[in-house]
Design a protein around this nucleic acid. Structure first.
Lengths: 137, 137
DNA sequence: CTGGATGCAAAACGTTTGCAAAGGC
DNA sequence: GCCTTTGCAAACGTTTTGCATCCAG
């Protein structure tokens, strides 16, 4: 899988300073940042970037299928530059740290369980405690 | 599995009018309501029940492990009186309808995927479109 | 009687929106 | 030059909080 920035370049995505900076902040795998963290990191290079623009760009990248949103209860959404739908997440309920995990085979829904829905994706979140929080307790 | 109210009675849960009404609203399986809907239903029997109390009671029931919270992106949390951790959810991305689903075997995380976390639960949400929304489109 | 539960209102939080100005193509 | 993107600030919906009052045990 090529990096986010290259995928975007290949897509004729209208390039602005703000969009490039957001994409650069998200570059690199295994990154899970909140909109707030993304704005803070982006603002180091482009101080006048606005919160609304960060949200606009993130929403657009999600719609394009280039990044994924990770929704954890009681916390701000995280943005994951790895759009591979076969990977899932493992979250620490104490500090919110999130890592990617890979399952051998994604559990399909038995046909008698679909309730006539058209199912098009599965989100799996494992919850637990990261080694760091465990050590502190 | 006995009903929510009976489980609570067996627990020496300090009983107030508000708590009983919230528990009664949640009684019955296959129910997935927002805090707002729960308050509205509770207010039919106990008009002066406050929003803060509804949230307090729900949080407490979640902590007790008597109900589950279902977090869907962009929507208010849903409360599920079925605390059975082996059931999961199937959600319509269009209207937000949620049904319970059961998997043959819950997918365990391979030992080389735990990142030294203590894993204690898995939340699985299947996303798709319910038959009703599909028919309308 | 006493500690925990409640109601109220306001604040907190993350996110979205409307609109005018700016700037990529 | 056109049309999209941006910044600002305010609105939004949901959830949480502080504090005085109330009531179940």
């Amino acid at each position: 899988m090529q990096a986010l920035l290259e995928r975007l370049r290949a897509r004729d995505w209208r390039l602005t300073a703000q969009r490039r900076v957001v994409a650069e902040v998200l570059a690199g795998d295994h990154v899970h940042m909140t909109a707030d963290e993304i704005q803070a990191a982006a603002a180091e290079r482009l101080p006048e970037i606005s919160r609304a623009t960060v949200y606009n760009v993130l929403r657009e990248l999600v719609t394009l299928g280039e990044i994924r949103e990770v929704v954890l209860d009681g916390r701000a959404r995280l943005y994951d530059p790895n759009p591979d739908t076969t990977h899932h997440h493992l979250a620490c309920d104490e500090c919110g740290a999130v890592v990617d995990v890979y399952l051998g085979e994604p559990p399909r829904l038995a046909s008698d369980q679909t309730h006539q829905y058209d199912v098009d994706r599965v989100d799996i979140v494992y919850h637990g405690r990261c080694p760091h929080c465990r050590a502190r307790a």
